[in-house]
Design a protein around this nucleic acid. Structure first.
Length: 428
RNA sequence: GGGGAGAUACCAGAGCGGUCAAAUGGGGCAGACUGUAAAUCUGCUGUUUCGGCUACGUAGGUUCGAAUCCUACUCUCCCCA
């Protein structure tokens, strides 16, 4: 049976800016046979965030190119804790949290990959399954014997921690992850491990294990994506509220959409290649179009639309778009008031809110401070002095007092500080 | 084990008896300008019922008065062994 990939994966990843390094021979391997490759996910939280999208996208491309993707959730590795990039020892997660996180992440991973497309269907595996019955003595004899401490210490993830100290648990992490690769190679013929560039060290321990344990001609391959950066040097994937999650409960579709809308021109050009599957010529046309009229934010809109739809579906995208148009368009209090209660609520789904008993006669300063919209009354006063506070899209001053006629649909009031900070007050 | 330096607001970092809610820079927020961008400029950046109140590692003390002086404690860093 001959195999021809749909496209050259490495080449594809390179122009998209998704290629950092790979092991010699990886490209040849991908061109000549159907390769099973995997990426591991760390169950540190009960949702994946957009930082995890890059490894997911690696799997997506792997599958699109005709290869077989495995998504590994780290039921076992999560119990140990990856020291890569960490300055201090991590606290261990308890088992309930871990299991909860695993099942949440599992669901999210499922939406990106095709699990029913014949021989290159995706598969989900949990490394806890092969570690749970592996006893310690067996492990140090069968696995530990093949990797020297000197080798392990040379890894950046370990070296960086030598001064401040690290537990044996975290030190052994790379062996555990390395064994995953060996196991998948051995059991499922998985020949490739992918991940972020910070995973290079861990991945190589895996290929090393395969080489030493697997016998002659045993070889594992690796491929990493670069760390995603922002043009201004700040960390990618954070918004004001912290991480940008894929879970709609943690980051609403509106906030998610806004995150992408707010990327700078320079970043948008790079991100559209990374986070969408649009082809090369289509993307370069879009970039040209965007450069012709940058103020239209064409790239940002396309990027935000694509990724929001991918993660939250058409419905999620539509709500995010409507909300954005109302909040950032020429949103006047009239257009706010014209919304039905249902639309109003779905639009403000991602906006912080607070309930209040009485509106009539309440001063704006008390409202801002007491509802938690602003941190304190002092801050409210400051904001008002700056003329940055709006009620239902109209600027107000310090002496403003609410009355029931300010309520939208008889129960809501929209507070804003500047353009981007929004808050909903609900009358009980 | 011996010697030295230090701990200040989100971070860095000045202040060394009153004029200190604490210089300056960064960050953050807002305003102007814009494209929900970047750059730039401006303002704000403990809290308050605007009387105060709480703050300069922790606990005491000296003093009319302390971030500043003294004592003890905790922690951090550096040098020597």
């Amino acid at each position: 049976m001959t195999f021809t990939p749909k496209y050259n994966l490495i080449e594809e990843l390179k122009w998209r800016g998704l290629h950092h390094q790979d092991m010699p021979g990886t490209e040849e391997l991908l061109m000549k046979e159907l390769v099973s490759g995997y990426v591991g996910f760390d169950p540190t939280a009960d949702s994946l965030h957009i930082g995890n999208m890059v490894p997911i996208i690696l799997l997506v491309h792997l599958q699109q190119a005709g290869h077989k993707p495995y998504a590994l959730v780290g039921g076992a590795t999560g119990m140990v804790g990856d020291p890569s990039g960490k300055k201090a020892e991590r606290t261990l997660l308890d088992l309930d949290t871990l299991n909860h996180n695993l099942s949440c992440q599992r669901k999210q991973l499922e939406q990106f990959l095709d699990f029913d497309c014949g021989e290159n269907s995706a598969e989900l595996v949990n490394n806890y399954d092969w570690f749970k019955d592996f006893n310690f003595l067996e492990f140090i004899r069968d696995v530990g014997k093949h990797i020297s401490v000197n080798y392990m210490m040379a890894k950046d993830s370990v070296k960086n921690r030598l001064e401040d100290g690290m537990s044996f648990t975290e030190f052994s992490y790379q062996l555990v992850q390395g064994y995953d690769f060996f196991h998948l190679w051995n059991e499922k013929n998985v020949k490739l491990q992918m991940g972020g560039s910070d995973q290079w060290g861990n991945i190589v321990t895996g290929t090393e294990l395969i080489r030493r344990k697997g016998g002659e001609n045993s070889k594992g391959y690796s491929l990493t994506a670069p760390l995603i950066t922002k043009a201004d040097g700040s960390k990618f994937g954070k918004s004001e509220g912290g991480n940008v999650w894929l879970d709609a409960e943690k980051t609403s579709p509106y906030e998610f959409y806004q995150f992408w809308m707010n990327t700078s021109d320079e970043d948008a050009e790079r991100y559209i290649k990374i986070f969408t599957l649009y082809d090369k010529s289509f993307i370069s046309n879009m970039i040209t179009e965007h450069k012709g009229a940058p103020h239209l934010r064409f790239l940002q809109k396309e990027l935000a639309k694509y990724v929001t739809t991918w993660v939250h579906g058409d419905e999620g995208f539509k709500i995010a778009l409507t909300a954005s148009e109302i909040l950032f368009g020429k949103g006047t209090s009239e257009s706010l008031r014209s919304l039905s209660e249902k639309d109003f609520l779905s639009i403000f789904d991602g906006v912080k809110k607070s309930e209040v008993d009485e509106i009539e006669g309440v001063n704006i300063i008390d409202m801002c401070g007491d509802t938690g919209f602003l941190a304190s009354k002092s801050e409210a006063r400051r904001a008002l002095k700056e003329n940055s506070v709006s009620v239902n899209s109209d600027k107000v001053s310090e002496d403003f007092n609410f009355s029931n006629s300010d309520l939208i649909n008889g129960k809501y009031i929209l507070l804003q500080r500047g353009r981007k900070n929004k808050f909903l007050v609900i009358k009980k």
